[in-house]
């Protein structure tokens, strides 16, 4: 407990800044490295979704967004980056799965959970809405209809 007290005392003397997208570089399916911060750098509104091939709510969410994605893009110019946290057990399923489902998203691989840890995600799915690397909205878990709430936020910040 004493340790914690020291930490909290130290923290009170420093101001917390806004939530930022962490500086982590991840590979895409073609082995090319991308800094996760590069997507929303120049004011591009971006949804970052942490998912896995074995996570049913994740697949439901990304399927649900897929149904309306062309409309979202047309109306707000938003883009979606789907970061898979699949490790060696299931990572080879990512490519056939996204093709089988016909998802148009940019896919990145967080095989050893560097991004998941840096963003403090206890579980997936985790959905972030970001712009200029500031996290504007954050939601964990998925139930049907959550995509509508996300879209309300997208519209709000696209203006």
């Amino acid at each position: 407990m004493k340790n914690l007290t020291i930490i909290f005392l130290f923290l009170t003397s420093v101001v917390f800044s806004q939530d930022e997208v962490p500086n982590v570089t991840l590979n895409d399916l073609n082995g090319e490295g991308f800094d996760v911060r590069s997507f929303s750098e120049d004011g591009q509104l971006t949804v970052i979704s942490l998912w896995a091939t074995w996570c049913v709510p994740c697949l439901k969410e990304l399927d649900a967004i897929n149904d309306v994605y062309p409309d979202w893009q047309e109306e707000t110019g938003v883009q979606l980056v789907a970061i898979s946290i699949d490790d060696a057990r299931t990572q080879k399923r990512v490519r056939p799965l996204i093709n089988g489902k016909g998802w148009p998203y940019k896919i990145l691989l967080d095989e050893n959970h560097d991004f998941k840890r840096a963003i403090g995600a206890a579980s997936v799915p985790l959905t972030l809405l970001v712009k200029n690397n500031k996290v504007l909205y954050r939601h964990s878990g998925y139930s049907p209809g959550a995509e509508d709430e996300l879209y309300e936020k997208i519209k709000e910040y696209s203006k």
């Binding site: 080879k92 399923r93 490519r95 056939p96 799965l97 996204i98 093709n99 089988g100 016909g102």
Partner: peptide, 11 residues
């Protein structure tokens, strides 16, 4: 070994 195109994926 795998093959993937739009609508189909095998691994």
């Amino acid at each position: 070994l795998g093959y993937a195109k739009s609508g189909l994926g095998v691994n």
